[in-house]
């Protein structure tokens, strides 16, 4: 139980002090205020960073999920020689420190004279998110029998229609889960963005910038509080979708 307190303490600190009417994050609390939130609404830099993060997050989520579907389908539906090696290869970003991925991409872009921008951030995030997407979708694909796809082919559908009429509806919860997961990862990612962003700012970069100014501290707490609440909502939504997916899976049992 103490461990749970340990897990939740930092998350609780953010909202608590975001309503505190003081420049400093110290006890005792000095009174309730919403001014830090009001300050957020006026911040121009925050708005553009938020929009940048959303752009990158959505593109990365869609692209990595598409790549994940390809890979998961290949891995679960075909007997391939040496596939283990290739899968391990795709999984590499999971086990190398992000900083190394970040600097190698930075060098690559610099040497090939690609200008740093949101696109380069997106490429970095794509590397990071694809393995996650693949893992989520592999587990979903393994969960349903290949005979559904065979039945569709047997009833006269080609691969394309089989995918849209059978595979996609059945793995849909996995696809949604993958989209949410990869979006969250990208939205939250700092290290790669730090190296690859150029002049554009993403939300974590913006926060990093704010941390240097003590007077911006309370409004950063307010921002953190908002993010905590929003991500909680998203996670519960994802779980509800996943549950409806469990039912579909349950139906497939004989």
């Amino acid at each position: 139980m103490l461990y749970l307190v340990f897990l939740y303490a930092p998350v609780a600190v953010l909202p608590l002090f975001s309503f505190n009417d003081s420049q400093y994050v110290t006890f005792p609390l000095l009174g309730f205020t919403l001014k830090w939130y009001a300050q957020l609404a006026d911040s121009q830099g925050l708005h553009s960073a938020l929009i940048n993060s959303l752009k990158v997050g959505v593109s990365v989520a869609v692209l990595s999920t598409v790549l994940g579907i390809f890979a998961a389908k290949a891995v679960t539906r075909y007997r391939m020689r040496r596939s283990g090696l290739l899968i391990g290869f795709i999984m590499v970003p999971l086990v190398i420190p992000e900083i190394i991925l970040g600097i190698s991409l930075l060098m690559t872009f610099s040497i090939s004279e690609v200008k740093l921008s949101l696109v380069t951030v997106g490429i970095g995030h794509l590397m990071l998110c694809t393995p996650f997407s693949m893992l989520v979708l592999i587990s979903r694909m393994e969960g349903f029998d290949q005979s559904y796809e065979e039945a569709s082919q047997d009833l006269g559908e080609n691969a394309w229609w089989t995918f849209w009429r059978v595979t996609f509806p059945i793995i849909l919860p996995g696809v949604v889960a993958s989209l949410l997961l990869t979006f969250t990862i990208s939205f939250d990612e700092f290290v790669l963005a730090f190296f690859l962003a150029g002049t554009d700012s993403t939300l974590p970069l913006h926060i990093w910038g704010q941390l240097r100014f003590p007077d911006k501290l309370p409004s950063t707490l307010a921002l953190g509080a908002i993010i905590v609440v929003l991500s909680t909502v998203v996670i519960f939504a994802a779980e509800l979708i996943r549950r409806s997916g469990v039912q579909v899976g349950g139906k497939s049992k004989v």
């Binding site: 065979e150 039945a151 569709s152 047997d154 009833l155 509806p169 059945i170 139906k251 004989v254």
Partner: peptide, 17 residues
């Protein structure tokens, strides 16, 4: 999908959705 045969699968493969 181009064969004039159809199959009843061992687990029936009734589309769950």
């Amino acid at each position: 999908n181009h064969r004039p045969v159809n199959m009843v699968f061992q687990n029936y493969a009734i589309f769950p959705h």
